[in-house]
Simulated assay, not measured.
Amino acid sequence: MLGGLGQLARPDAVSSLRFLSEFVTPPATSSASSIVNPPASNKDTKAITAATQTGSTTESKNRQKLPLPNSGPSHVLDCGAGIGRVTKQVLVKAFDHVDLVENSAIFVKQAREEYLKAELESGKVCEVRCSGLQNVEFEGTSWEGRFDVIWCQWVLGHLTEEDLISFFDRCKKGLKPGGMIFVKENNAKIGIVIDEEDSSMTRSDVVWKEMFAKAGLKLLREEVQKGFPSGLFAVKMYALEPIF
């Protein structure tokens, strides 16, 4: 989903790890802390961190970090994972275990047999499931109550409003107590921009927040991705928790 702009992978990963670090304590053996808190000589990473625009609620500032005590190893689900770029560059650094769900059987095969082979063999990546998000189920499966975090990046634009709200509602069954949903998606300036070529839509910040409210999700924090070239859609990260 970087559209051939491979140079965006690092600022994307750095910003995602920094955003997650507000809510998640990474494993002791993780390299995430050195990325989130770069040494003084690392000017590029420091510039990305300093330039980030952040908005948060009082609840997010006082929220206990995941994983919660006595909840076991941390576990995250990467939704619309492709071959696992976000898993490899972000999520395995921030969590003990990662599961993936991806609609393309070709990408699933590549993730299992090539790109994430080492992570699967080590147990960092546990399950790679082939399914569209409109069909993925949590309740009554091994994914019920499994995840500290469900991470959705550059995939939700393929879901209609009805399917998106239904997906969010089902995600609640996949979360541990205190679990969260993170969304990282392109933002249109106004309304919804339809891409006829790939049958996707880019929602504005206002529309995203309407979707979250309709799905019974509370917005705890939002942040604009920095370090991307001008001329692209703005990218925004949202940290959400279910309203019960």
Rank of each mutant, 00 (worst) to 15 (best):
residue 219 L to E: 15
residue 88 K to N: 10
residue 12 D to W: 03
residue 178 G to T: 14
residue 157 G to L: 05
residue 169 D to W: 07
residue 57 T to Y: 08
residue 84 G to H: 07
residue 214 K to I: 06
residue 72 G to Q: 07
residue 200 S to W: 10
residue 179 G to A: 09
residue 25 T to H: 04
residue 15 S to T: 03
residue 98 V to R: 04
residue 196 E to H: 12
residue 207 V to G: 02
residue 231 G to R: 03
residue 61 K to W: 04
residue 108 V to D: 01
residue 163 D to W: 06
residue 189 K to Y: 08
residue 155 V to S: 08
residue 56 S to H: 13
residue 67 P to N: 04
residue 7 Q to C: 14
residue 92 V to C: 07
residue 33 S to G: 08
residue 44 D to W: 11
residue 242 P to T: 12
residue 30 S to D: 09
residue 2 L to I: 10
residue 219 L to P: 10
residue 23 F to E: 01
residue 93 K to N: 15
residue 234 A to R: 06
residue 35 I to H: 03
residue 179 G to K: 06
residue 209 K to Q: 15
residue 43 K to M: 14
residue 139 E to Q: 15
residue 137 E to R: 11
residue 11 P to D: 02
residue 159 L to N: 04
residue 227 G to T: 01
residue 120 L to E: 05
residue 119 E to K: 12
residue 105 A to I: 06
residue 72 G to R: 13
residue 99 D to F: 09
residue 226 K to R: 10
residue 204 S to V: 06
residue 179 G to F: 06
residue 78 D to M: 07
residue 167 F to R: 05
residue 46 K to M: 14
residue 144 E to I: 04
residue 164 L to E: 06
residue 84 G to M: 08
residue 146 R to E: 01
residue 147 F to H: 12
residue 113 E to I: 04
residue 145 G to S: 07
residue 212 F to G: 05
residue 126 C to F: 03
residue 131 S to C: 10
residue 211 M to Y: 13
residue 135 N to L: 13
residue 187 N to S: 08
residue 94 A to R: 03
residue 14 V to F: 06
